[in-house]
Structure formats: structure tokens, C-alpha cells
Amino acid sequence: MRDDLITLDNVSRFYGEVLGVNRVTLSIPPGITSLVGPNGAGKTTLMNLMTGLIRPTRGRIRVLGLSPAQPHRLFGLVGYATQFDAFPRGLSGFQFIYSFLRLFGYSKAECKRLANRVIDQVGLSDAAGRKVAGYSKGMRQRIRLAQALAHDPRVLILDEPLNGLDPLVRAETINLFRRYATEGRHVLVSSHVLHEVDMISDQVVLMSGGYVVAEGQIQSVRSEIQEQPVKILVHCRQPGMLASKAFEQDHVVEAQLLTEGSGVLITTRDADRFYRLLNHLALNGIDIEGVTPADDNVNSVYDYLIGGEERVSP
């Protein structure tokens, strides 16, 4: 097993009967990896699993060869900025980072030096003496980032790190990720908007409903998604005519009439073109009563992630 990878082998995590993530198998090389999916997709669960904040119900995780069950070894190498927006009470930004570093066992002088350096790095030098409780959302985001970066880790795991940042700070933060990645480190970033991270990512892991639905370099993820057939259920009064019209299209793979004769189940490789066809048919006299995506498919997830491209509805 390579020691420069983050590997998840058939990892599942359930919260009672609720699924967190299921059968996730990943191998993440150094560079920037984006974990993308809508809310509830399992991104945070996956990150918490990698950092040992929660344990897998099944499967095995290794971060650079280390088990997350050994935090005393793992966190020398890993920095994790969580999404939890709560801080120890009564501490200033500097005190927060300083106290955090003291827990690593560094000397006072070293903690002071590292804290000042990282606070400067995230652009919070002016606010370092103020209480974290009085910080704006963006500043709290940055101090969390500083806490993850403070001990100069080889693996950075950042849960929605760009949330709440203004454009200038966002650009600086992205540059920081790039710099870390070019140094051969792992930068694992989660986001629910693919546009936000696809330009900076070396690889993307697309998640939905606790499953990894696609992974790889961004170009291959795009083509993988586009090649996935998608099922659409159309309720109408002339299902036979609709099925025959649909089947004339090269992107329609299958048209299945419903037994009760109230509609047709279409399987297509290009949902957008099919929706345009439905519009056309509706204008030409086919009475369409309803259209429903019939499966929780990759394409719908992808549509959501890239910002919800509007579908043409009949």
C-alpha cells in the first residue's frame, strides 16, 4: 500500500438506520481533490471518517498509511477545518490558535511563532486580538482555516472552506490551496457547488445520497455523467404515440409503456433534448399530464451541483 495516498476501502457509516455513506472505495493521491455533492450527500461524514471524528460501521480507512483511530499519530500530518461554527469560549483569534498549538506539545515560543505566521497567512493579523465570538462569518471561516494550517500538515481536509468568504479572500484562499498542492500535499475540499471547485481541482469525487457516484479528473467525470442514461416518467393520454415519437430520437434508449396505459417510462442519454422534444409534442397536441424524473440519477445530481440548469418543462 502506498503511503502517499488517502484510501477508503468499502467504507460504510450508518447512524442507526440512517445512511451516512455506503460502500465508498476511494484512493486519493496528492493534489487538490474536491468532494462535491448536494447537502446530505455524505461529504462531511466522509471527512469526519477520514479524521477519526466518527468511526466507520464497515470498511477500512488509511491516511498516508495511518489509521484515523490513532489521532496522536494522524494529526501530526493532518489538518482539518470542520464546518462546526463553534469555538472555545472567551478566546481571541490568537489565543485560539496558540492554545490549539499548545495541545500539540510545541514550546510557548514555537506556538507564538506558528500562530502569528498562520494568522498572517489567512489575513487576520489585525483581528488576532479580538474575541472569536465577535468575528464575522468569513473571519470565523478563516480562523478555522488557520487552525487547520497552523502545524503545517501534509494533508489538509477542509469542509466547505470557501463558504462565506468575499471574492478577494476566496481568490487568496484558492491560491493557498494551489500552493499546498504544488508542494505535493493533499488538499481535500468539499463543496456543494461544482463550479466553485472544478477549476482548481486535480480530481473530483461526486457524491449523492451517501454514495460516490463519479470520481476522477473533472473532464472524465463530466463525460461519465453525460453518458449515464436517465429515466423519465411521462404521464399522458396518448402514451403509444409519445413512445413512438420518442423512439425516433437517437438519444432515447428505451420507451416502456406503463401497464395501466396512463404513461410511458423513457430512458434517455440526453435529458435536455428529451425535455425539448416533450415541449414540441405538447405544442403539437399530445396531452401531457406530468413529467417526473424516475430515478435519483447522476445527471440530476450533476444538474444540481453545476447550479441547477433549468429544465424545459412541458
Binding site: T51, P71, L74, F75, T82, F84, D85, A86, F100, L103
Partner: peptide, 15 residues
């Protein structure tokens, strides 16, 4: 309850 326990868990410290 304060949701701040995780800060300790993010350090190389034995539980």
C-alpha cells in the same frame, strides 16, 4: 452541547 469538543479531537493527543 457547545459543539466545541472537536477542537481537542483535531490534535495529536491521545484521548
Amino acid at each position: 452541547l457547545d459543539k466545541s469538543l472537536h477542537f481537542y479531537m483535531l490534535t495529536p493527543m491521545r484521548r
